[in-house]
Structure formats: structure tokens, C-alpha cells
Design a protein around this nucleic acid. Structure first.
Lengths: 214, 214
DNA sequence: TCAATTCTTGAGTGACCGTTCAAGAAAGAA
DNA sequence: TTCTTTCTTGAACGGTCACTCAAGAATTGA
């Protein structure tokens, strides 16, 4: 689908003067750093090197641009490491260990803004921009469902003890990742986040004992 | 200090037509729900029932009002439960158990906006409002220092094993609390957050073993 | 060469932002 | 009563917001 529209020549009219992927990257960086609402169209056009008219012709409006940014982000290294860990690690436990460690690295990578764009870009938003907040919340909820499905499967396969609660575990790891994202935005470095990740894995259920002591 | 200025009569000039504490509560609710930047002065004056002139005469400007809101919040039940737990619980472990459980309750209390105002009210902010973000980040950092001091003391008193890392633990619990706050803003209820809190306590060091397995 | 199509440009839209201010109203002091 | 002080009110301030549009430039198809 994308190949036909981008590679095949013979498009009528004046060609765009900018590289769509490049300006999307610039927009991503801004949204990632400041969040959706705090990023103005003026800042966007400045960073993207295009005028408002071009932005609106190419992307629709600010909200559509943001949705495209999120879509691109989810396919970037910072967005796919969860899926990659699930696909490549042999055990569910190893997958979560890897997810937490990768998050520690990615969230604090100085090559891009700190934390996770999906977690922080619409943390607070005016009533009028509710749809953006709902959109990101749905993405987060879908990620949690992915966690839960993997953990449920692991329990069915005997990888988790019978008294393990996949739903509670999924939400716990989700909360830890959101906390790590926030900590990285507060300045936490890779070492700190890695230490947090290691401690977080202590919640992994061990066969034969309850998962927590009161 | 507060008693003299509020109770003693004999103040010159026209008295304020509003209850300062009441309008502060209204402002707190708005800032808590939407965050600093996404809350406009127009919404504030509407919710507080006063005109812009009165707001600026009484509170200075939007930023000063917000700082006063944060100060009041920190002395409210939602802001003091950490200090109360430290003061009332006999052991450090019991204090952290209580902090996590209380956070689960408070963050999801439907009587007020979800989560922690200090954690979420300036999550993303434009460059011009940096000072507000820095202000809240400092508050969070101070809370972490409080955690760390308590844990360091616990280690010195033998309540924690010799290989325990108070700094890492403090940051871990800080991250968990930030994650719980975010989860509550995504709709998590008390039961979910409580389950997360219980799982989080699995990271508490046990004498004689390493704190984590790899 | 000429029409059709697509993008760029620059100027401009109304709405809302945080904030200010002069004028009037309500209190104590003289 | 009159002065002084403090608060309220309503109408504004310039600035920025997201967004639009007509006119010109660059391309393809005929």
C-alpha cells in the first residue's frame, strides 16, 4: 500500500518540497518533548521547516499530525521493543526482564526526549483536546491487554504457578513502566532505571509460595 | 500565623466577598484534574466564582495561585499520608506497606480528581512554563529524599540487610507510586491499585538473600 | 504550448490566552 | 461626614492560538 504511493512516479502536480518522514521526525521530537497540547503549530512549522499551509495540506490538522506521529513512533525502535521481546525471548519471564531493561535504556536514551511518548504526551490536556487523551489511553490499554494475554498464556502453559494473577501482574508491570517513564522525565539515568527494573522483577511469582507477603 | 490574619478583625477597607479557602479548593480541583497549563484563568474564575481582577488582587498571578494550591494540597489528606505513615508506623517496612495501600485508596478516591497533583499537574508544559515544572519536580525530588533517608536509617538500625540499597529502593517506590498515579488517571480503581501495591512490596529486601534474581 | 493538478507562500481569520486598569462599592478611621 | 483603604466589576490590552485562503510556482498529461 505504501510502496505504490511513494515509489511509483507519475504523480500529478507540484511535488512536495519536504521529506515527509523527516518532518514527521521533527514533529515527533517536539510532541515527545513537550506533549500534545503544549506544542504549538507555530513551533511545529518552525521545527519542520514548512509553513502552516503546507502542514495542513499534508497532514490535515494538529490532531491528525499527532496521530500520525504516534503511529510512526509505535513502529520506531522506541515503540517496538516490547513486541520484539515477546517475539524473541523463549520464556515469558525472560521477555518481561528484557522489556524492563530495554525500557530503562530507551527511556533514558539522550538521543531523543526522555520517557515514552504514549505515556507522557497527553498527561494533562484541556477538555477540548479530550479525544487525544482518549486516543493515547486506548493505546496504553491495548498494551496492557498484550501483557495480560502473554501472562495468561504463560499460566496456562505452566510457566506461572496456579495462584498467579495474570491481570494483576500485567497492571503492575504497566504501572512500573509508566513510573519509569516519569522518572526518566525527571532526569533519571539508565543506571537508576535499570536498578528499578531489577527490583520490579521481584514481584514475579515463584512456584510454591504466595506472590506477596503481608 | 494563620490565626492572626484570619480571625483578628479590624482590617481596613472593603472585605473580600469570597472565602479564600473555598475558592482555593475550587482552583485545586481544576488544576488537579486538568494540570497547570491546560487550566485557563477563565475556567479558574468561573469555578471560583470570582472575576479576574479579584483573582489577581488576591493571588498575584496564575503561577502564584498554583503554588498556593500545591502548598494547600500538601497539607491536605491527599498530601500528608506519606508523612503520617512514617510518623505512625513502628517499622519502615510497615510504613511503606501503608504508604502504598493509602496511595491506592487516595489516588482512586472518587471524591476528588484521580492521582497525585504533584505527579501529574505539570507532566507536560511549554517552555515558558518551565518554572512550574521545575517546582513540582523539586517537590517530587524532596519526597524521594525523604524515602531515602528513612530507608538509610532502617539499614543502619539493622531493619534492612547489609546488602540493601536504600537509594535504589527509594527510587523504585517513587516510580511505583508515580505509575500508580498514572494508572488511576487512566481509570484504575482502588482494587487494582491495591493489588499493584501488594505486588510492589515483593521488592522489599529479605535478609540472607539477594534482593533480586536475574 | 497549454490546461490540469498539486504544493508553497504570505497574509489574515476569529477566538482565547494571561493580565491590567479605571471606576464604583463597602468597610474602618478621623 | 469625609478620608483612606481595600475589594469588585466590566471592559479592555497585546499576544498567541489553531487554522484558512487566494495567488503564484512547479510539475504531468495532452
Amino acid at each position: 500500500m505504501g510502496a505504490m504511493t511513494t515509489t511509483a512516479g507519475a504523480r500529478r502536480g507540484r511535488p512536495p518540497a519536504f521529506d515527509r518522514a523527516a518532518v514527521l521526525t521533527a514533529a515527533t521530537r517536539l510532541f515527545w518533548e513537550r506533549g500534545y497540547q503544549a506544542t504549538s503549530v507555530g513551533e511545529l512549522t518552525g521545527a519542520m521547516g514548512i509553513k502552516p499551509g503546507s502542514l495542513y495540506a499534508a497532514f490535515g490538522d494538529k490532531e491528525s499530525l499527532f496521530r500520525e506521529v504516534v503511529r510512526a513512533y509505535q513502529q520506531s525502535p522506541a515503540g517496538v521493543f516490547v513486541g520484539v521481546a515477546f517475539a524473541e525471548e523463549p520464556t515469558t519471564r525472560a521477555a518481561f526482564v528484557r522489556i524492563l531493561r530495554e525500557a530503562a535504556r530507551v527511556y533514558s536514551d539522550p538521543a531523543h526526549p526522555a520517557g515514552c511518548l504514549v505515556i507522557s504526551a497527553a498527561a494533562n490536556v484541556a477538555a477540548q483536546d479530550d479525544e487525544v487523551a482518549v486516543f493515547l489511553r486506548d493505546v496504553r490499554a491495548a498494551n496492557l491487554v498484550g501483557f495480560e494475554e502473554r501472562l495468561t498464556t504463560a499460566k496456562r502453559l505452566g510457566e506461572l504457578p496456579a495462584d498467579a494473577d495474570p491481570t494483576a501482574l500485567a497492571r503492575y508491570f504497566g504501572a512500573v513502566l509508566q513510573g519509569m517513564s516519569q522518572r526518566s522525565r525527571d532526569g533519571a539515568d539508565t543506571a537508576e532505571l535499570t536498578a528499578t527494573a531489577e527490583l520490579a522483577m521481584a514481584a514475579w511469582p515463584v512456584a510454591g509460595t504466595g506472590t506477596t507477603a503481608s
